[in-house]
Each structure stands twice: as C-alpha cells, then as structure tokens.
Design a protein around this nucleic acid. Structure first.
Length: 259
DNA sequence: ATGGCCCGTAGAACGGGA
C-alpha cells in the first residue's frame, strides 16, 4: 500500500497535477492540505472518475484538508471524523479516516507566522491539543495509525537548508521542535528517517529567490507511523518532480510504501 | 538592498503562506 501527503496550495489550481500524480503513482491513499475550497466546490466527481473516493473538510480561502483513497484497492474512507474533539477550532486542519486497515490522520498544522505572535501561540496550542487527542489512541494500540501532513516544523537542523539563518525562527524554533519530539515520544516514528536519504532533502521551497533551483528548502511535510506500522514501511521518499512543473505547489509530495 | 512569489478574494490591493 502506498500512502502519501501533499500540500497542494489550492486544489482548484492543482487538480490537473493531482490527477496526473495519482495516475502515475497509483497511490492508495493521498492526504491533501490547503485545498482552499468549500465543500460544495470540492472536485469529488473528477476524483471519483479517476478511481478515488474522498473525504474532505474545507472553508473559504484558507486551510482545507482531504483524504483520497483508491476505490479498487483500499475502498472508500471509513469512520471519517473532522477536527479534534478536544479542541474547538473553526479552521479546517484535521480529517481522519480508516483506510486499508490504517487509521489515517491528515493534518495541516498552523504556520505560526512569527515566533511570539498570536498565530504562533495558536500553533503551539493546536499541537498540544493534537498530542492530548492522539496519546490515548496510540496507547490503546488498536488500529495502526499514520499521521500525515504539513507539520510546518523542520524537526532538526539537517532538515533546513541554512540552519543558521533559520535558527530560532518559526518552523524551526525549539518549542515547535519540542512538540515534534513529543509526537515521537507517543511512539510515532518519522518514516522518512527510517531509511538512508540524500543529504539536503526538503519538501518545501519558497516561490521566491529561485529557492527550488538553489535547493533552499525545508523538510516540513512528514509521515509519522505507530510501531506496528513502522515494521511494514519499506520505503519513504519525497517526489521532487512535482515541484519542477509549471505552476507547481510550493510543497512536494511525500510517499511511504507499506507492505 | 532584508524583498523578490503565488493564491484567494476581490473587482484594487491585501492577508496569508513559510
């Protein structure tokens, strides 16, 4: 089973690329962030014609998440939930579903804007609530669980093109990294780091400054898995090809192969 | 030179992203 995450930065703009990507990768599960579409505008029909069932939660202009699952392999998303029951939140950043025997949690962590800002405080609080919600789910040790999405956290300096420039900045600050480690302390494992990877592997590059061509990026999109799933993960990689296209998202997909 | 780009909502610039 192939599971993936991709911040598409507007599904309206990126739908043709998403359809291309699904056709070429034949991914079984794809988690999307920043769809930026209200539910009435979600392209469920086009995706269904491409062989994918969908669960989605959107709002105007900002945020928006979705889980796509391949009908002929894993079937439709089941037991869909939106948001975190422990955290009232207007923003559509979290959707979960059971697919192919895995509890898939698709998350769009807040950006945080700048350390010390109101948005930064919201980000830390949002993650704390996520931790409180996930802890008993993981401790119960039931269905294998995968947390996929745009975490807006570069966990370590090796995930940053210029650690000195980014030191202490939002996405790299210690309180954010502490919370990433708190997720790991729950038993979640960074699938990407289970394998030998190229140095300077990133998932996001700014649209400005020719950042992609210069590989000035950050690794902020992640796939985390519980121990029982970890044993079944046979590969994990970043699909940089999508970032090379015309009119790309600023994020690249991350893909994990599960036995 | 500390900003450069892209997207949505506008129906012009601006907020937000990261």
């Amino acid at each position: 089973m192939k599971i993936a995450t991709w911040n598409v930065n507007s599904l309206k703009v990126r739908l043709p690329q998403v359809l291309d990507w699904l056709a070429s990768t034949r991914a079984d599960v794809l988690c999307l962030q920043e769809t930026k579409l209200t539910d009435d505008k979600f392209p469920a029909e086009a995706l269904a014609q491409a062989g994918y069932e969908t669960a989605f939660a959107g709002q105007p202009t900002y945020n928006g998440v979705a889980i796509l699952s391949r009908r002929d392999s894993v079937g439709a998303p089941a037991s869909v939930t939106v948001g975190n029951p422990l955290h009232a939140d207007e923003q559509k950043r979290l959707i979960s579903a059971s697919v192919g025997g895995v509890r898939v949690i698709c998350a769009y962590f807040p950006n945080g804007q700048a350390v010390g800002s109101d948005k930064y405080a919201y980000k830390l609080g949002w993650i704390d609530a996520l931790l409180r919600w996930l802890e008993p789910q993981i401790a119960a040790g039931g269905e294998p669980l995968a947390l996929l999405g745009d975490f807006n956290i570069a966990p370590e300096d090796r995930d940053v093109h210029d650690p000195k420039l980014w030191a202490g900045q939002v996405l790299c600050s210690e309180p954010e990294r502490e919370r990433f480690r708190a997720l790991q302390a729950l038993g979640l494992v960074d699938a990407f780091r289970l394998f030998e990877q190229p140095e300077k592997s990133y998932t996001w590059w700014d649209y400005r400054q020719m950042a992609f061509r210069r590989n000035m990026g950050l690794r902020i999109d992640h796939i985390l898995v519980t121990p029982s799933l970890r044993e079944r993960v046979t590969a994990c990689s970043i699909d940089r090809d999508m970032r090379k296209r015309e009119q790309p998202s600023d994020h690249a997909p991350v893909v994990a192969q599960i036995e």
